[in-house]
Amino acid sequence: MFNAFKAAFIEYGWMGLVAVGLVLAAFLVIRYVLFKWMDNRFQQSLEAYKIQAQATTEQQKHDLQKILEDKKYDINSRFDRTTRINQLEFQMLPDLWSHLNDAIIKTQSLSGIRQYPDVSRLSEEKLKRHLVQMKFTDNQIETVVESNDKDKSYRAIIDAIDHGEAAESFNRFAITMRKSAIFIQPDLFVSFKEFEDIVKSALIECDMNRQGFYPTRMFEHRQKLSDAAGSDLNKFEARIRDRLWGSIAPEI
């Protein structure tokens, strides 16, 4: 730089020295302005990047929060749905179990040895009083009183009443099972269905015997019911008890 000033002074004198100074000054000004412009551009780009990065971060936070809220809602919905289903199941299982036992007991009673009073020896007044106590209808009372074989008519009506009660008990169980099917665990429902088939077959067999459709009385299905009502029913009871109490027993 000094050599440039010296050479200009020797060649052109003071005018040359001034010219070189002006050129140098112009160069420095241009250099300063250029670097200032570049620095401003860099600062603007940096600030724009920070704003964009901050906006992106906020959007990511918003997206993440939305994902978490959706997941929380899904979990809560599943939990509420499961809780409601379990509540309905725990309400229906005891009722269904009770109806099943009623149907089994009443159906088994149809095939047992029964003793009937000797109504043929009663006077008409005592006979009517007894039939009223047994909740016979007026038509049934009339049938027995006017029958030539009062004992036979009496037994036939008693058997029909008992079969009707057993059938009603079975229907109550079957209807309850159908209504609660969607709330019962599949494996338990399959077992309920198996007992339904066994009781139904035994009930039909008892009715066929009662009405004399068979040359001799049949006992096949009633024997199956008797067998199932033993250990099989006890095992099924244990499974239902485990379903109802298994999840809370350790906390008691």
Results as ranks from 00 to 15, higher is better:
Ala19His: 09
Gly16Lys: 04
Gln223Ala: 02
Pro94Ala: 04
Arg241Asp: 04
Glu237Phe: 12
Ile252Val: 04
Ala19Gly: 08
Ser247Asp: 02
Ile30Ser: 04
Asn40Trp: 09
Met1Glu: 12
Ser120Asp: 14
Ile105Phe: 07
Arg239Ile: 00
Asp149Thr: 01
Ile248Cys: 03
Thr56Asp: 15
Thr107Asp: 02
Leu188Ala: 09
Met38Trp: 11
Val119Asn: 00
Lys50Gly: 05
Arg178Ser: 08
Asp118Met: 04
Thr107Arg: 01
Val144Ala: 05
Thr137His: 07
Leu122Pro: 03
Ala55His: 14
Leu68Phe: 08
Asp159Gly: 04
Asp162Val: 00
Met177Leu: 15
Ser169Gln: 01
Lys128Arg: 10
Ala53Leu: 12
Leu24His: 04
Gly13His: 10
Tyr73Gly: 07
Ser231Met: 08
Gln115Ser: 06
His62Phe: 08
Lys200Tyr: 13
Gly230Phe: 02
Ile161Met: 01
Arg155Gln: 03
Leu93Trp: 06
Ile51Tyr: 10
Phe170Gly: 06
Ile175Val: 14
Ala7Val: 04
Phe90Ala: 14
Ala166Ile: 07
Ser169Pro: 07
Phe219Pro: 01
Gln44Asp: 14
Leu233Cys: 08
Phe195Trp: 03
His130Cys: 09
Lys126His: 09
Phe170Lys: 07
Ala228Met: 11
Ala167Gln: 07
Tyr154Met: 06
Asp227Val: 10
Lys126Gly: 00
Gln59Cys: 01
Phe183Leu: 10
Lys6Val: 13
Ile75Asp: 11
Leu244Tyr: 03
Leu34His: 08
Asp187Glu: 15
Lys61Met: 12
Gln211Trp: 01
Ala238Met: 14
Ile175Asn: 13
Val190Tyr: 14
Tyr154Gln: 04
Lys179Glu: 13
Tyr154Glu: 01
Gly16Ile: 11
Phe173Pro: 04
Glu220Asp: 05
Asn101Leu: 07
Lys152Val: 04
Ala26Trp: 09
Leu17Ser: 09
Phe192Trp: 04
Glu146Ile: 03
Gly164Pro: 05
Asp227His: 10
Phe42Pro: 00
Leu233Arg: 11
Ala174Ser: 15
Tyr32Arg: 09
Lys72Ile: 13
Ser153Pro: 02
Thr82Met: 14
Lys193Phe: 11
Gln115Leu: 09
Lys66Arg: 10
His62Pro: 01
Gly21Phe: 07
Arg84Glu: 13
Glu58His: 10
Thr216Trp: 06
Ser77Ala: 12
Trp97Pro: 00
Tyr214His: 12
Ser77Tyr: 13
Ala4Asp: 12
Ser147Lys: 05
Ala55Arg: 15
Tyr214Leu: 10
Ile198Leu: 03
Asn171Asp: 08
Ala160His: 10
Ala229Val: 08
Glu146Trp: 08
Lys150Met: 07
Thr83Asp: 12
Glu125Ser: 15
Ile240Glu: 06
Ser98Val: 00
Ser120Asn: 13
Tyr154Leu: 10
Arg241His: 08
Leu233Tyr: 06
Asn148Cys: 05
Arg243His: 09
Leu24Ala: 14
Asp227Pro: 01
Lys126Thr: 11
Ser169Leu: 01
Ile161Phe: 00
Ile198Thr: 13
Thr82Tyr: 11
Arg114Gln: 00
Arg155Gly: 02
Ile198Lys: 11
Val119Gln: 00
Leu122Gly: 03
